[in-house]
Amino acid sequence: MGRGRQKAKYTKVARELKYNVPETNYEQLQRELQGSRAEHQEDELSKWADYIDDEEGDEDAEDYDQRRLA
């Protein structure tokens, strides 16, 4: 008895998701995406900036190139 009820609930939810399309405010969505993208990128870069050492990165790249050519 329990399996039939569970399956019926899943079928009902799937049907609602398939046929009922919610109203979308595209202007608000665009504002959210534009605003969060720039802020997110700056946060990510500043978070990892302390760990980056440009001189070490160049040596690692040269070592990688030499190993790749060999």
Rank of each mutant, 00 (worst) to 15 (best):
R67D: 05
L33G: 04
D54F: 09
G35L: 02
M1F: 09
K47S: 07
Q41Y: 05
A70N: 13
D60N: 08
P22R: 13
G57K: 14
R37Q: 12
S36P: 00
Q66P: 00
Y64A: 10
T11R: 15
D43H: 11
E23F: 10
I52R: 10
Q66M: 11
A61N: 03
E23N: 08
D43Q: 15
D65C: 01
D53F: 11
G57A: 12
T24K: 14
A8N: 12
D53C: 05
S46T: 08
E42V: 04
T24R: 15
Q6P: 00
G4F: 12
G35M: 04
K7R: 15
Q28E: 12
Q28A: 10
Y64L: 06
Y26A: 11
Y19E: 14
D54N: 07
S36M: 07
D58C: 01
W48N: 06
P22N: 08
H40V: 02
G35F: 04
E39L: 03
Q30V: 08
A14N: 12
Q41R: 15
E42C: 02
G2E: 10
E16T: 08
T24D: 06
E44F: 09
D50W: 03
P22I: 01
Q34I: 08
Q28S: 03
E16A: 15
Q28F: 02
G57Q: 15
D60E: 11
I52M: 09
K12P: 00
G2A: 13
N20Y: 07
E16V: 02
A8M: 06
L29Y: 02
Q30N: 12
E16P: 00
V13I: 14
Q6H: 15
V13K: 15
E62C: 01
A38N: 05
Y51S: 05
K12D: 05
E23Q: 09
K7F: 04
D43M: 13
E23S: 07
R15C: 01
R3F: 07
E44C: 03
E62T: 04
R31N: 02
Q41H: 06
N20F: 06
M1D: 07
A14E: 10
D65T: 06
Y19G: 00
L45C: 07
Y51G: 04
E32V: 02
R37M: 06
K18C: 03
L33C: 03
L17D: 08
E27G: 03
E32W: 02
T11M: 11
E27S: 04
Y64P: 00
T24E: 14
L33M: 10
H40N: 08
R5L: 12
Q6Y: 14
Q6W: 09
V13A: 14
E59Y: 12
L69E: 12
Q6L: 14
E32D: 09
E56L: 12
E39G: 03
M1E: 10
Q34D: 10
P22A: 07
D58Q: 09
E56G: 01
A38C: 02
R67K: 14
R37G: 00
K12C: 02
K9L: 14
E44V: 13
Q41L: 09
